[in-house]
Computed example of a mutant assay.
Amino acid sequence: MTRRDIFQAIADPVRRDIIELLAEDSLTVNAVAEKFEVSRPAISKHLKILKECGVIDFEQKGRERFCMIQPKTLIPAFLWMEQYRNLWDEKLDSFEKYLNKLQTKNLDDEQNK
């Protein structure tokens, strides 16, 4: 079996959407599949990868299999991304200042016409 990690789990946008969905509530496999416009086998494959990464677990309740998020496994990805937050905050602040400066210049140009 291929060893998978949290970064493989979040690398795919469909899996990120599944994580977001399951963060709100536990759902059956069918309920998860109904939320997406991809085939059920494709959703099953995404769920399998999320299970292998430890992001979700399944619980059998009667005839239904419920998917439940395992939030602790997301911590390594969060910590890795957190180290870059200051960098992005600085870049976004700088970009905002630049946009404000452009807007002020454009307003000044309009008033001077």
Rank of each mutant, 00 (worst) to 15 (best):
T104F: 08
D5P: 00
V38D: 09
I69W: 07
A31P: 04
I10F: 10
K61I: 15
K101R: 12
T28D: 00
V29C: 00
L79F: 11
I49Y: 12
T28W: 05
E96W: 12
A31G: 04
E34D: 14
S39Q: 07
F78A: 11
D93Y: 11
F58M: 00
L102T: 09
W80Q: 13
Q103K: 04
E110V: 03
I10S: 00
D93Q: 06
L92K: 10
D17C: 05
E20M: 09
I69P: 09
I49T: 14
K45F: 13
V32Q: 10
L92G: 05
L50H: 02
M68D: 09
L74H: 01
Q60K: 14
A33Q: 06
A23N: 05
K105T: 03
D109K: 13
F58N: 00
R40K: 08
R15G: 01
R3D: 13
L22H: 11
I19C: 00
C67P: 00
P71I: 08
V55S: 14
L79R: 08
N30T: 10
T2I: 15
W88P: 06
R15F: 07
L50Y: 10
P13N: 02
E52Y: 08
E110G: 07
D5G: 00
K72M: 14
Q8P: 07
D25V: 02
A77P: 04
V55H: 14
K61L: 14
T28P: 01
A31Q: 13
C53D: 01
N112W: 04
L50K: 10
M81A: 09
E24C: 02
S94A: 08
F58L: 00
K101C: 07
G54P: 01
F58R: 02
Q60H: 08
I56Y: 07
V38Y: 14
K97H: 14
K97E: 15
K101E: 13
L79N: 15
T28G: 02
P41N: 07
M1T: 05
A11K: 11
R40E: 08
I43Q: 08
A23F: 11
S26E: 14
V55T: 11
I43Y: 06
E37W: 07
D93C: 11
T73I: 07
L99I: 01
T104W: 12
R3M: 12
D93S: 15
